[in-house]
Computed example of a mutant assay.
Amino acid sequence: MTVLLIAIGGFLLGAVLTSVGTGILSIFGVNVLEQPSLRIVISALALQGLGFGSVAVFYLLTHNKGVDFLMLSMPDFRDLLAIVGGVVSLFVVLVGVYLVQTTFGIQSADHGLVKRGMQSPEILLILVPLSILLVGPGEELLFRGVIQQLLRFRFGAIIGITIASVIFSVAHVGSLSGEGLIPSLVTYFLLSVILGVSYEYSENLIVPSLIHGLFNAAQFLIVYVRATGNLPISVI
């Protein structure tokens, strides 16, 4: 029950902060709804940055848990190998799921960011650094650093990773639309399991954070190329 409240709390706080930020900007004459790029930045800052981060830090402080609980340390060579292996593993799973879905005619739901990115490709370039600096670290701090750790200490690593991955996948329901919701959630679950295993293996929260961020950033770049046919010079 505690882990569910933590997850819900992160999303609620993020939603409130997003509304507050949007309201403050509107006072100064900035219409966020008419500026998709700005809306994406505010959402990432408010949700993954401040929302998830604040709830995670609040729990850690109020329960006298610190860096040791999070398993947070400077990455070494072994961690770097884990990061590379984790990113490759995520793409292998993603391609595998795509092949299975294509073979059996299974449809996936549409992701809101990808749909907006195809219409306004500049959004995708903004999401590349945000994925690495905010989205990956923010989501991993909450779902792996706090939720998975709590479950792990109570039920063991396998059950901890499994339940945390279920919560992680369900948490993405709001960003999906159209048919194929269940197949998409299964995909998120499988990807989350890899992130959870990488955290358990490395015993370092920075590892899944970078895997997550780099994986998302690479996907946004791929979608950008699909939308424009060009590779941005800044990332060559």
Rank of each mutant, 00 (worst) to 15 (best):
G96I: 02
V97F: 08
Y98F: 14
G105H: 13
G105V: 01
G105N: 10
Q107P: 07
S108P: 11
A109V: 05
A109K: 12
D110G: 04
D110F: 11
H111I: 14
G112M: 13
L113R: 05
V114W: 07
G117F: 01
M118I: 14
S120E: 14
E122D: 10
I123E: 13
L125K: 14
L125H: 09
I126E: 10
I126Y: 15
I126D: 13
V128N: 07
V128K: 03
L130M: 08
L130A: 09
L130Q: 06
S131G: 01
I132R: 04
V135E: 09
E139H: 07
E140I: 01
F143L: 03
F143G: 05
F143M: 07
V146C: 00
V146Y: 06
I147F: 03
Q148F: 03
L150I: 11
L151E: 12
R152I: 05
F153W: 12
R154C: 11
F155N: 11
F155H: 12
G156F: 11
G156W: 10
G156Y: 10
I158R: 15
I159E: 13
I159F: 12
G160C: 03
T162N: 13
A164N: 12
V166Q: 06
I167Y: 07
I167W: 09
I167Q: 06
F168D: 02
V170T: 07
A171K: 06
H172T: 03
V173A: 06
V173T: 14
G174M: 14
S175V: 15
G180T: 02
S184T: 15
L185D: 01
L185A: 02
L185T: 05
V186D: 00
V186N: 02
T187N: 09
T187F: 05
Y188H: 04
L195C: 05
G196M: 02
G196Q: 12
E200T: 11
Y201S: 06
S202A: 13
E203L: 13
N204W: 00
I206W: 15
V207C: 07
P208D: 03
P208W: 05
L210F: 15
L210V: 05
I211R: 12
